[in-house]
Design a protein around this nucleic acid. Structure first.
Length: 299
DNA sequence: ATACCGACCTGTCAGC
DNA sequence: TGCTGACAGGTCGGTA
């Protein structure tokens, strides 16, 4: 479901609502739930912690936590709580009186009396702890992908599997694709290269850059990659501005739908005339994913 | 190492 | 109305 702009919208919304609150109690659903971390360990780490901040890293939502200590004690290291929404995951901040909807997998009771819920029908979402002060090596332990950070084992916390599309330079962006034979669209979707880009924004940025999705990534000229870099950042920023794309049931932490779907040029537009040249938008399958492009504008 | 493909789940919607 | 099959914004593990 959610890609970078939607995850950013959710993270910002949750941050604004619950930053500074203490987690009083933790409920985790039974059965085969989407926990990468053992539920008992996760509940123990969360209970009593204070939420210092909520932010997006790639498509992951990172909860920075703090723990109050007895006077004089040294600052303890606290793990981070990592939430991945998968396709249908939602994070909601609600009154606990409201009945928990079907497919609720976690509920955190907060000091304000409200409840933070993780609801995910399709169960592609994931909840995990990222150990405090963990260098990049601990990825296997948590089951979370993690970019290898060269050298320094500084406790920067979770950094995600790949590079951040909004801040990567055009040169570094181009370097990601050097020598690669896979389709540029598949490369954009590869989270260990660039994290946060999903099917919608891959299609939309390739359209705006005038690049055919099936083009081998390593064959694109410097100039065209520069155009793609600019298009991708522009599309992501515009989408964040509009609160993301609501295709079916995506809503932010307050239940508000995004509006970027109104700006889609090719995604979900099969057969409709291209907004630029009028040629019908074509849909194919690439890397197992539905792919949309204008056969005239994208070469 | 790189690239491809099916599997994982449930819900929804089009078509019969 | 009800059934069936295709499809959905994401990742992961196995295979070539």
């Amino acid at each position: 479901m959610p890609e970078l702009p939607e995850v950013e919208t959710v993270a910002n919304g949750v941050h604004a609502r619950i930053c500074g609150e203490r987690i009083e109690a933790v409920w985790l659903g039974g059965k085969p739930e989407p926990f990468k971390t053992e539920p008992a360990a996760m509940a123990a780490a969360l209970t009593g912690a204070r939420i210092a901040g909520v932010r997006r890293v790639g498509k992951h939502i990172v909860f920075d936590l703090e723990r109050e200590l007895a006077a004089g004690a040294e600052t303890s290291l606290v793990p981070q709580w990592i939430v991945h929404l998968g396709m249908t995951g939602r994070l909601l901040v609600v009154d606990p009186e409201i009945p928990r909807p079907k497919h609720t997998h976690a509920a955190l009771s907060l000091s304000s009396g409200r409840e933070l819920r993780f609801v995910d029908a399709r169960r592609f979402g994931r909840l995990a702890l990222y150990p405090a002060g963990a260098p990049s090596r601990s990825a296997n332990h948590t089951g979370l992908n993690q970019e290898r950070s060269p050298g320094g084992s500084a406790a920067e916390g979770f950094r995600g599997p790949g590079r951040e599309p909004l801040t990567i330079s055009a040169d570094d962006f181009a370097a990601l694709f050097r020598g690669r034979k896979l389709a540029i669209k598949a490369a954009l979707l590869n989270q260990s290269l660039l994290h946060g880009v999903g099917n919608i924004y891959a299609d939309e940025s390739l359209f705006r850059a005038g690049i055919r999705p099936a083009t081998p990534a390593g064959r694109l000229s410097r100039t065209r990659l520069a155009r793609l870099h600019a298009a991708l950042q522009a599309v992501l920023r515009a989408a964040i501005e509009l609160g993301g794309s609501s295709i079916s049931d995506y809503v932010d932490a307050a239940g508000v739908r995004g509006f970027f779907q109104l700006e889609h040029k090719v995604y979900g537009k099969e057969g409709e005339p291209c907004a630029v040249c009028g040629t019908p938008v074509r849909r194919t399958i690439l890397g197992g994913r539905s792919t949309h492009f204008c056969p005239r504008c994208q070469r």
